[in-house]
Design a binder for these strands. Structure first.
Lengths: 197, 197
DNA sequence: GCCTGACTGGCACTGAGTGTCAAGCAGGCA
DNA sequence: TGCCTGCTTGACACTCAGTGCCAGTCAGGC
């Protein structure tokens, strides 16, 4: 069964990749909102209906990976010893996703598109909320709270603030044209949040 | 001219209120996504086309005019003396929007709908991003940076973190069924962010 | 009485997203 | 070899959000 599954999986994976490549090219060429799903489908050589069997929405093409990255971040956070403080642990966890960026040029183009397109921006923050939900349980433990204690906003606030810092750093990095180090910007953002009076 | 303007303004304001009341009743009765704009329009006694002359999207009925609320928060922040520290000033500014909440029962129902409906959640995030953009300039000044210095992520990080704390507090308040004080939850959230190691 | 400006409704259109159904294309089995 | 089964695909029709356009209408000003 695992071989059969792999076969299906592989062709499906190839289709995903094909559609993504085609769509990204169209997005970067004509803009995200200006590109219709009909264009993507016909360019990729599939029907409109089949497109929706691969991606639920147009935004998912760009942000699809973010959902799976959430699990990655959570695993990274859980790998950090509980003795490490919250901010340090979060830095470690969020660093895991930063490490797997591809070529800077493509990353910058996608990031720019994301910050300039309202629907994409909103969607990406929804994904960040998903990360938040995944990270909160560990953070709760890390703060010494009971696993079923849902009356303290601290864990969610910490995780959300860290992600907000990452977002602020990312936006600055994007607007500066990819100059500078994202990790350094993040550290500076966190430092300002923690030390401001 | 001011009288004419008032006349128009008044009837327009009345129409806004009428549509909002009708729509909210339908939303709370059948759910946000289950309610179509056709239903709202016909119940309010106007055409579908006219509805869109009052509200750009269905979400706008619930979240109100983003722009005006953003300006409110910005004005509140700018009213706080520069000598007051960032966190204290942000608390003051965000308190302005908290103050204009109506009866708790309705607020809770709306908040619950907002956290449960993806499109509404996305829109509220966009709203918060808009707030952020409006608050950053003042925060930049407050941190002693030059007005045209866009290389420091600190102002955006601080504003975004404060809003993230408000969001975390709001979600907890909603999930607890409106028990507890939102301001107290916010203070606790901010305290945890500032004092965590 | 006319003219202008704003609101309104109706119509048609695009585009996203969904449900349904028949056709095609594997692999499994006798 | 031929049939059966399960999954994918394309095609069609549909709902719903949102926009552009045009004509009717109703106010106040000249």
């Amino acid at each position: 069964m695992s071989t059969e599954s792999s076969l299906w999986q592989r062709s499906r994976q190839a289709a995903y990749a094909e559609i993504t490549v085609v769509a990204m090219r169209l997005f970067l060429e004509h803009g995200f909102e200006q590109t219709t799903i009909d264009q993507i489908a016909s360019t990729a050589g599939i029907s409109r209906r089949s497109f929706f069997r691969y991606f639920g929405t147009k935004e998912d093409i760009v942000l699809g990976d973010l959902a799976s990255q959430g699990v990655l971040v959570r695993d990274a956070l859980e790998a950090v010893p509980l003795s490490v403080g919250p901010w340090e642990a979060l830095r470690e966890a969020l660093g895991a996703v930063d490490a797997l960026e591809g070529e800077p040029g493509a990353t910058l183009a996608i990031a720019r598109m994301m910050y300039e397109t309202p629907s994409l921006r909103a969607r990406s923050i929804e994904k960040h909320l998903h990360w938040q939900a995944l990270l909160v349980p560990n953070m709760r433990m890390r703060l010494g709270l009971a696993p079923d204690d849902v009356t303290d906003p601290a864990p969610a606030a910490l995780v959300a603030s860290a992600i907000a810092c990452l977002d602020a750093a990312g936006e600055l990095w994007t607007r500066s044209g990819g100059a500078g180090d994202l990790a350094a910007l993040y550290d500076r953002a966190v430092a300002s949040v923690r030390t401001a009076s």
